[in-house]
Every structure is written in C-alpha cells, then in structure tokens.
C-alpha cells in the first residue's frame, strides 16, 4: 500500500479501538489531519491526562483521579450498602439512574474457569478486608445475569453469608445474557429498586 507511513500507523492504531473498523479509522485519521491545531492539541492532552491521571480507587477499585474515588470520598453516600459490580463501566451505568446512594466495589471481572479467571485474579480478597473494616449492612450483587456473572454472585454470597450480612441481588428485568453497561437507564433503575433476597 502506498500511503505515508505516519498516516498508516495512525489508521492502524485507531482501528484497534472497540467498534472502530478500518474505514472509520481512516476517516478519523484524515479528519484529525485536517482539523485545526487547537482541537487536535486538546484531544491529545485529554488522552494523555486520561492515562496519567486516572487510576483505581484504593477502596472500591472504581476509576478515580485520587486515592479515593468521588463516590468513596462523598460523606453523603450511604456507607451501609455496598454494591458489587463487574467493571467500572457498570458503576457509570448505575450512577446514571440516580436510584442508588451507597458505595461500590468493582471486581474487575467475573469468575471464568475456562479462561483462567480465578477468585485471586478478582478484587475479592480486597472486598473481604473491606467488610472487616467497614460496617456494611447490605451487600447488593449487581453482576450481569449471564452464566459467569451468576456463578460469581453465588460464590460471593457463599463467602458473605457466614458474616451475617444481608445479601441481595438486583431484580431480573434485564435481558438474560445481556450486558449491564448497554442496558437503558429505566431498566437498570427498576432492577435496583426491585432487588430481592438471594
């Protein structure tokens, strides 16, 4: 292919992003080339800041700018509830509903023996330590209602039950096999309100 190398590299890198194909990558690269310097610089800076400034919250492993994320730092949040989710994107999805005022714990995945994801590769030990320190009264399991998500929920409930803490699970209403992060707010909001015993 006879294309200037820097352009080719940019297209290749862009097409590695999720839901961006070769053609979209090429359009983006050419657009960025044409755009004015200011717009280009601010995009570059935003991307650099993203990587440099965002880290994991020390307590809940949500994405954060500081040691503790905005949710863990917020005194008004209800500290008696911890909602366990798979990924930080699920925190965003639940926050959008404005139905939940408790804290979170991001596992960073779900159990999947087939692909080698064990309890040790998730933030489960960290969660149990949290339970010793914090005075949570209710743990809400908000994992995706698919095979691995449910197995992980079962596993966590077995770990928590002996500690005499209430364990609930968000109500079904989400499409089976679906992804929490892609569901609409109304569905997730109702699922949080109608959570049931587990």
């Amino acid at each position: 292919m006879q294309i200037a190398e820097p352009l080719l590299v940019a297209i290749e890198e862009l097409s590695k992003l999720p839901s961006i194909g070769k053609k979209t990558a090429q359009r983006l690269a050419l657009y960025l080339l044409k755009s004015n310097g200011e717009q280009f610089e601010s995009l570059v800076k935003a991307l650099e800041d993203l990587k440099a400034k965002i880290k994991f919250c020390e307590r809940c492993f949500n994405l954060s700018e500081e040691q503790l994320c905005i949710i863990c730092k917020n005194e008004k949040r209800d500290k008696s509830k911890i909602c366990i989710v798979e990924e930080a994107s699920d925190v965003i999805a639940i926050e959008k509903t404005h139905e939940y005022s408790g804290l979170y714990h991001v596992l960073g995945g779900v159990l999947s023996p087939l692909t080698g994801v064990t309890p040790d590769s998730l933030k489960i030990k960290e969660f149990l330590k949290r339970l010793e320190k914090e005075k949570a009264k209710e743990i809400i399991l908000a994992l995706n209602p698919d095979t691995e998500g449910e197995a992980t929920a079962l596993y966590l409930s077995k770990l928590i039950k002996p500690l005499r803490i209430k364990v609930t699970r968000i109500a079904r209403g989400l499409p089976i096999g679906g992804d929490l992060e892609f569901a609409d707010e109304a569905t997730i909001g109702r699922a949080i309100l109608n959570r049931g015993d587990f």
Partner: peptide, 13 residues
C-alpha cells in the same frame, strides 16, 4: 481448600 467454595457455586449453577 481454596477452590471448594467456587466449586460449590458452579455446582449450584
């Protein structure tokens, strides 16, 4: 010992 509870969870599924 480490995996017993995990096996129980999958048993339930």
């Amino acid at each position: 010992a480490d995996s017993e509870m995990e096996l129980e969870a999958w048993n339930q599924k």
